[in-house]
Design a binder for these strands. Structure first.
Ligand SMILES: [Mn+2]
Ligand SMILES: [Mn+2]
Ligand SMILES: [Zn+2]
Ligand SMILES: [Zn+2]
Lengths: 143, 143
DNA sequence: ATGTAATTGATAATGATTATCAAAATCAGG
DNA sequence: CCTGATTTTGATAATCATTATCAATTACAT
């Protein structure tokens, strides 16, 4: 199912599924829910295929993000991270634990009001990105 | 008024107001509402004082952000930007125009609901950061 | 004044990402 | 199946922002 959806996206964008790209995609699929940096993907991809260059990893991640197969975002620390993004066009938020660094997700989209408000002011909102910082349930001193 | 508030913050944190730091702060005050990168601050600071090192600019911005005189945030493109942040402890959002790159601000804080929701799940939310991407009123094709 | 600690600035080092370019793989037509 | 054109790859160099280093300057406390 996942692969079928991805293949379709690749076809639509005339993007060939080379062995290297397949390995990289498999890494992303194996890590659904996680947020991987380019070098983390590189390490895992080497484990599977052993002769894959870091440049190819960067190129592939970039390309896959541009056709919305991956979602690319930058976190504090200034490095980009990627995750599989199938279909979810728009709302996707993060809670970053200031203690353990764990990144969890918020699916709720309660930002609609705010967007409406801004559009009334003349803006056209296409996307948004929201990050919460605090403590996860494990690290919350209150728990 | 602004300077008084800042001086107090510096005192509280035993942070000396050297000539260089004063120049950097003046640059930030002169640019209220804008979001400056370290090298932009550096350029402007040189204009005022001429013998100030880039290292000092980085150090000073970092320190001032850590004591909440400045607000530091990273935008797409992976570089940090700073702006004066007096008192506003928590909510401060951005609208980034995908056409002209202009960054404007949203003061509204309609995220309270979402925070409450997360705290019920065990999280402790300390801060959040929200970025909207779209077109500003000038660039909105509809206007 | 004087010794100690903090600050500065030039510059080297780092880390992530991007650019370059020749070699390898893939493709389309014959 | 060949074959020349195009795409992709991987090693490596280049870039860019930020951080670390360290000797020299400055400020502070006695
Ligand atoms: Mn996510
Ligand atoms: Mn702002
Ligand atoms: Zn945690
Ligand atoms: Zn605009």
């Amino acid at each position: 199912m996942v692969w079928k959806t991805i293949s379709k996206k690749l076809d639509e964008n005339e993007y060939r599924l080379t062995p290297q790209r397949e390995v990289i995609l498999q890494v992303m699929i194996d890590n659904r829910g996680k947020h991987l940096s380019a070098d983390e993907v590189y390490i895992e991809a080497r484990g599977k295929s052993s002769n894959i260059g870091i440049a190819t990893v960067y190129r592939t991640l970039e390309k896959l993000a541009s056709i919305d197969v991956l979602y690319k975002t930058i976190f504090e620390g200034g490095k980009y991270r990627y995750e599989l993004s199938l279909g979810e066009s728009h709302q996707h938020h993060h809670i970053i634990c200031l203690q353990c660094g764990h990144i969890s997700e918020v699916e709720e989209d309660l930002l609609h009001n705010l967007e409406i408000h801004l559009e009334k002011q003349g803006y056209k909102i296409l996307d948004h990105e929201l990050k919460f910082y605090g403590y996860c349930p494990q690290c919350n001193p209150k728990n």
